[in-house]
Design a binder for these strands. Structure first.
Lengths: 249, 249
DNA sequence: CTCACTTATTGTCAGTACGACAATAATAGG
DNA sequence: CCTATTATTGTCGTACTGACAATAAGTGAG
């Protein structure tokens, strides 16, 4: 050890000269609504490590491929959904604990994707099975997730919850056109709390650029038909749709 | 192209077997207030590439070192501020464009740090100079930043602006104890807009857990002495301190 | 010591937004 | 035609907001 400082008079030499190389992966939190329940795509791993455990879809970033491109490629590989059909995709956070992958150092950049009407996935590649499962099930601990994927999923769900307040993210859970009621069910599913129908209705319509009216109405259901709306141009909601805390009497 | 699928019967084989390794770095957006102006720490690079250009402080992640540990280590190396004295540090985003570093593929995880009373930095290591410069100057384009650091800095400033609304981040720009006026100057500097003093005062005191009263008063200035407060336990502000849009008459 | 000046803090007030909930509208099914 | 069901609009009291006036409590000049 005595030769260490002698060989490296500049204390940063080892860092600047020889940074360690690491594998870089992307993992995806793909959220969708199934029967008014917030669900995420999960993969049953067919190979070690964590063989047989559920995990988030993901894979390694290729040489010359941007992080976003890797995320979109994985999204399409695992779900068949291309970038156009994905409602929304954004970077979530990066997880780089030295021990998070038992094989070797892997730094994983997590992405959050929202897909309306996610098709039933098919297993393929390293996956033994692939399913859309309720987020509550995946986070309950009864089905332990591989790696640190429980933390990643939790971060994704929290991000979605927060962004519903001040962005138009909720519309990306819906199809091209939707009713205000459907939009409210998105909020209720993601937040896990009921909202007052009439007040929600008014707030959405009073938020400029959130939704735009179409001349079509919903059909088929029981009760009065509802007007259909499309996503408006707004990205940020002004004013935000804050989570209501019940008023004290 | 015809031999591509023939050579790889399993389309994932190359990915699962041989992920490319990349250098992983952390870059820091270190924000502080100097004379009511939002400033960031910048380094004048002493080595190629971008020699002579200003850049954000940062460095490579070491083997066996977590991302957060690398960020804290760089923070201390560049400013002498240890984790305890840093008001706040959080992961910002990860930048991984294949071309962002001309030498080789480098994936950089950016961190946002808030430091009250940032000491005047000293140049060292690869840096020819180190200074605390106004964010407006750094983002004006007059002093082009190295790599994609302008984007990173912009992301950091935007994060800080957003978080002032719904978190107690602003208190981390202040020293241990501070006046409401000082807190307001933080908001005004970061948002770049003046706020109404009396209304701000009331809002801060009506937000539970934002600040806690001390029994001390400010001294020395002209005018009535102000009560000193400390950071409260709240992390999220409920209700949030929304950026006021001027009321239409 | 008194007064002008400066800054901190509290008050006032009208307009607005919100949550709770009532009322009305529009369809389907019997 | 009647009822059940859902959509949409109204009502109302409270709370909050922004604009700004008023008061409190120091400093420094003379």
């Amino acid at each position: 050890m005595t030769n260490k400082s002698a060989a490296q008079p500049r204390r940063r030499a080892s860092r600047a000269g020889l940074p360690p190389r690491m594998a870089v992966a992307v993992d995806l939190v793909i959220l969708t609504l199934r029967e008014d329940t917030l669900c995420a795509l999960a993969i049953e791993r067919g190979i070690a490590p964590f063989r047989g455990r559920w995990a988030l879809p993901g894979g390694f970033v290729r040489a010359g491929e941007s992080l976003e491109a890797a995320a979109l490629r994985e999204l399409e590989e695992e779900t068949g959904v291309d970038a156009a059909r994905a409602g929304h995709i954004e970077q979530l956070a990066t997880f780089g604990d030295p021990q998070r992958d038992p094989r070797e150092r892997v730094v994983s950049v997590a992405y959050l994707a929202i897909v309306p009407d996610l098709p039933e996935p098919r297993a393929g590649g390293d996956a033994r099975d692939a399913r859309v499962l309720p987020v509550a099930t995946l986070l309950s601990g009864k089905v332990p997730l591989a790696f640190d994927h429980a933390r990643i999923l939790d971060a994704g769900v929290e991000r979605a919850r927060a962004k519903l307040e001040y962005s138009s993210l909720a519309t990306h859970f819906c199809a091209e056109s939707f009713t205000i009621h459907a939009l409210r069910r998105v909020y209720e599913a993601v937040w896990g709390a009921p909202l007052d129908g009439p007040n929600f209705h008014r707030k959405v319509l009073n938020t400029p650029g959130f939704v735009v009216e179409t001349d079509q109405m919903s059909s088929g259901g029981s009760g009065r038909p509802a007007r259909l709306y499309r996503r408006g141009g707004a990205i940020q909601l002004q004013p935000p749709l804050l989570r209501a805390e019940p008023r004290a009497p």
